[in-house]
Simulated scan of single mutants.
Amino acid sequence: MIINTYVKFAPAVFVAKCVEPHEKGEIITLTSKYGNETEVKVHNLVRQQDGYYFYSFTRCDGMNSQVRAMQKVERYQSYADNAVKRSQKYLESANEGKDFLSLGEPIKIGHHSEKRHRALIERNAQRINKSVEEMYKSESYKSKITYWESMADKIDLSMPESLEFFEFKLAEAKEIHQELKANPDKRAHSYSLTYAKKAINELEKKVKLAKLLWA
């Protein structure tokens, strides 16, 4: 049985590792290291090595890094909502015996009510602590939501549209570099021109890789 697998090709980019050649547009099945199978569409041959063929691909189900990011957002939002609900529930249950406790009655040492009184205060204290813990969990999930929301708008090299995107960003970076080169007074600091050239170099690498993957 022929098994096609995934292999990392570049940051955020996996390609299909195949034992047989395939045509562009062909639908093949990739198997993950966990045994999960996914249908993908073949794009470009990016490497041929040691008897294997390596192809860029897109998933037939439309799943990409942006979709995965939005799924993360939805998942963490659900976690945060549930944590808030649990926090509120603990807070409400901490009102047990509030009419009695609001009287400010001191614990009567040695009285038959002492044990019950202390247990009530301890239960409510634990519930308050649990309520606070759940609110902290909610805030932690919200910070993750913020991160994944930012990732949902990110275009990376795993997407075919990255070629057009990085070509545009490269042209934009070259214009900025040329503007700073021609007008020293527009440089915010002594390294402005250096940073502008560095941005060009990095984008040129991304465009080169994007062309290999998706042109």
Rank of each mutant, 00 (worst) to 15 (best):
Q66A: 11
H112F: 11
V207W: 10
K98M: 10
D61H: 04
F57P: 01
P11S: 14
Q126M: 14
K17T: 02
S138K: 14
K181A: 02
H111R: 07
S190M: 07
Y6Q: 06
N82E: 14
M135C: 14
L203R: 01
W148T: 00
N36G: 01
C18Q: 09
I109A: 11
E26C: 10
F165W: 09
I28G: 10
K41V: 13
K130G: 14
Q49S: 15
L212D: 01
Y141D: 13
E164H: 03
H22C: 09
V7G: 00
R59C: 04
S140A: 15
L193D: 04
L120I: 08
L101W: 05
T5R: 12
G110N: 07
S102E: 14
Y53L: 07
N129T: 13
E105Q: 05
E149R: 06
F168H: 10
R47S: 08
V13K: 03
I155P: 03
I109G: 01
F54R: 04
F14P: 00
D156Y: 03
T38K: 07
S102P: 00
N36P: 00
Q77M: 05
Y52L: 14
L91P: 00
S158E: 11
R187I: 05
E167W: 12
Y90S: 06
M63W: 10
S138F: 12
S65F: 08
R116Y: 14
D50Q: 03
V46Q: 07
E37S: 07
I2L: 15
S150P: 00
E26A: 15
Q77Y: 03
S65G: 04
E20S: 08
E133A: 01
V19H: 07
E20A: 10
M151C: 12
E74Q: 13
K89N: 10
G97W: 08
Q178P: 01
E122R: 02
L101I: 09
F57N: 00
K24N: 06
K206G: 02
H43T: 04
A69E: 10
R187M: 06
V40D: 04
N4Y: 11
H112Y: 09
Q126R: 14
S65H: 12
Y191V: 05
L193V: 04
A125Y: 11
I3H: 00
S93Q: 15
A10P: 01
K41W: 04
K206Y: 11
E105N: 02
L170D: 03
R75D: 07
G35L: 06
D185R: 05
V132N: 09
L163N: 03
Q71V: 05
D61A: 05
H111F: 10
A12F: 15
A173M: 07
M151Q: 15
V132T: 06
H22V: 01
R68S: 15
E23M: 04
K17L: 08
G104E: 10
S158R: 05
G62W: 11
G35P: 02
L212P: 00
